[in-house]
Simulated scan of single mutants.
Amino acid sequence: MSSSETVVRAPSELGAMRRALEIARRGPANGPNPRVGCVLLGPDGEVLGEGWHRGAGTPHAEVAALTDAADRGASTRGATAVVTLEPCNHTGRTGPCSEALLAAGIARVVVSVQDPNRVAAGGAARLRAAGVDVETGLLADEGRALLGAWLPSVERGRPFVTLKIATSLDGRVAAADGSSRWITSEVSRHHAHDLRAEVDAIVVGTGTALIDDPSLTARNAAGELHGQQPLRVVVGHRDLPPDARLHGPGGELVHVRTHDPAQVLAQLAEREVRHVLVEGGPTLAAAFLAAGLVDEVHAYVAPVLLGSGRPAMADLGVTTIGDAVRLITRSVIPLGPDVLIVATVDTQSTTEEN
């Protein structure tokens, strides 16, 4: 249905979609599968059941909602399913949701976002072919925002890449003697650990691993490990010493022996990684930027001046201002004495200039 068409919709469907978006956020923010919520409505707009996807290998939102309706003793014959993502039409860890909805007698399906995954897509077409009334695009902006990094990862066929930088006001990540703890404040560091807990993998170069000896864990304010630990990825050919902190408790350690960012992402995609956090150092950051493989930048900037020391970015091959990598600022967040700048790469500007 095109956006120009007038839709006669029961008022309860809009509220049900907002509820579906709300409960979908209870699912994990990371992992190979998206956050999805579903609300089932009866002929009078009453809620028959609701459910959300709780992670890979668990029932999808539609099946969870159908189970909830059954537990309530509600019949779903002729009901409307309001779901944040197009019902899948393939068998993976679970069966196709399109078939589950048909078996339950669902007469109408309202979808926020169509599934860009060519393997799983086709649920709307399958339902329509069986005579189900299907509408797509309800609260589509909110639906896309809910999907976060999962959506561009599927659309681009590679993990979504966030580049994280913690720098002084004059763009240094370490002083002249190599010391870097701590440029940013404790508030910023806690925020960065929360970001780690939301991604699937953290990537650093062997240089950073050898110089800084990081653990690359996600910890809460009390210093305890988050329940979800990202994959810890080291990029480069040099070996890590056996006593490196990366060999300690935390997420699985993976050593990718290449300097090619595209190969790194390809190997992580095979592991169903959807969201990658590139943390360092300057050489790795420049390599990902130069390859056009950075989607988002998180720059923690401290009101500190060092004057010399290691820069936040290695050589990008920029010799004139017209070749600069342009970013679009999405938000500026105060964090104690620091600020966090969240920006995306201005690919349109780069294309126009080239």
Rank of each mutant, 00 (worst) to 15 (best):
E272K: 02
V297R: 05
H298K: 06
V8D: 10
G317Y: 14
R219G: 00
A312Y: 04
R72W: 09
D338T: 03
A81L: 12
A100N: 08
E252P: 03
S98R: 08
L41A: 08
H190N: 14
N30V: 00
V173E: 03
L101V: 06
H60R: 14
P261C: 06
T84L: 08
S3M: 05
P159D: 05
H53Y: 11
E279D: 14
G148L: 11
S215W: 05
A140Q: 08
V345Q: 03
G15W: 15
P249D: 15
L293I: 04
G223W: 01
L138Q: 05
M313K: 01
P87A: 04
T6H: 13
V254N: 04
V39L: 09
A24W: 02
S153W: 05
I165Y: 00
I202A: 13
T347G: 02
L340E: 01
P59H: 06
H259G: 15
R245T: 05
S98Q: 02
I341L: 00
S188D: 10
S4N: 06
G95S: 15
D177V: 06
R35M: 13
N354A: 05
V63A: 13
W182R: 15
G171R: 06
L265G: 09
G171K: 06
R118Y: 01
P32L: 12
A222C: 12
Y300S: 12
G73Q: 08
V7C: 00
T206C: 04
P32V: 12
G73R: 07
A130H: 13
T347I: 01
T329N: 01
L21M: 11
R271I: 11
L253N: 03
I165M: 08
R219W: 00
T67D: 14
A64K: 11
T351Q: 11
N117D: 15
C38E: 09
A120V: 07
L40D: 05
A286S: 01
L102G: 07
G250A: 03
D71R: 15
G251I: 13
A79E: 10
L265K: 07
